[in-house]
Design a protein around this nucleic acid. Sequence first.
DNA 1: TTCATACTTCGATCGTAACCGAAGCATCTT
DNA 2: AAGATGCTTCGGTTACGATCGAAGTATGAA
Lengths: 227, 227
Amino acid sequence: MKEGPDIARIGTLFGDPARANMLTALMGGQALTATELAQAAGVTVQTASSHLSKLEEGGILAQRKQGRHRYFTLADAAAGALLENIMGFAASRGHLRHRPGPKDPALRKARVCYDHLAGDYGVRMLDSFVARGAIESDGENLAMTAEGRAELDTLGIDVAALTSSRRPLCKSCLDWSERRSHLAGTLGKALLAHFLEKGWARRSGESRAVLFTPEGERKFLALFPTG
Amino acid sequence: MKEGPDIARIGTLFGDPARANMLTALMGGQALTATELAQAAGVTVQTASSHLSKLEEGGILAQRKQGRHRYFTLADAAAGALLENIMGFAASRGHLRHRPGPKDPALRKARVCYDHLAGDYGVRMLDSFVARGAIESDGENLAMTAEGRAELDTLGIDVAALTSSRRPLCKSCLDWSERRSHLAGTLGKALLAHFLEKGWARRSGESRAVLFTPEGERKFLALFPTG
DNA sequence: TTCATACTTCGATCGTAACCGAAGCATCTT
DNA sequence: AAGATGCTTCGGTTACGATCGAAGTATGAA
């Protein structure tokens, strides 16, 4: 009868393949219905329902009723961060389910990781920020510099508003296709939102891929040159 | 047949109570033998052996043969960090196994969390650093200031050497007894080592408790005054 | 009202993995 | 060499939980 946080309970919740599939699907950041999640997990809706109630009770998922649909999302940023952490750890140990990274080249290039940009483009963005001194990196820990704040300001991103949250502004997130870090945190989220809003890119309907327009791609690459 | 990191595998490894007990025991930072871990988990050595080989194969534990003993430790800082993350998440959702925090008052006051100081004293130390501007906090993200570096220098802690590692210098870690953050990262590790080396405190042989001497306690409290 | 859709609950089956006793291997002691 | 200690492997039992069919509830459409 030990004391302490119930690690095993959390582990069990992440430890079932069907639940893991659902959570991975929700890393796209979009709310999904029970039926969609059942399909993503490859199980019947009855089974999915059981899994979803467990995940909700465990505080990993939140649900929102809307008509006869039930939309599920990750409960909060902490749940997303934990999920990212586990994915990164699994990838770092070579625990991949099939191949070292997504087969779909679009996914490999740019995709959503919970609420920010991952893949080749995500890695490039962070690298570029660090190279020009906009972000300082102590290994994994990231901090925004004054130059960085000024630069983002000209882009029209209100850094001050982003720091008010309890969630960190900059956070590194290990990319499982690139095996390098990309930018998470409220800034990562804001930047992705910015790209989508400006019409540089749009979310693929089905997958987690982020599809850049030729114009958007040109601007993105100009904004984030490689070292 | 989905692509991506195998979350479920990691989850399963953390998801068994016996394994979770072993990992919790290893959060003390000390290497433990298979027999000791079996006792900590409340299972026979046969069962423990099976669990340990799974954890090792999963990249969470590392073992070192020494004579007829086999010493197990957490594989690396990443494994420790993930464990801390899960513990913090579980605590934040109220998933505690018995009571809200350790029963043992010594554990509640000061204990080892993988390799740094947790509990009341750990929280106090971080709070004090932040209050005096030695560490800046963007929510959860921590960064050392120039003043902080100077102060640690006078304490005899070589901050430059600590930043060379790929592991972050400062990292916040959610305390499951205090439900507030304490200081992890290479600095957290170095500070605990400093206290032990100076004879201000010593590790309890059995538990994860850190026992301060009256003299050490006086110095610690003077060094880290409350707001 | 009647039908359709979205989801949950119930009940039963089945597979997997945790568990331990017994036996086996390795290392140290005497 | 003989015995003791630390750990692993094997085999068989057992329990838990993932799964799905069937039936039940809620919301919306006709």
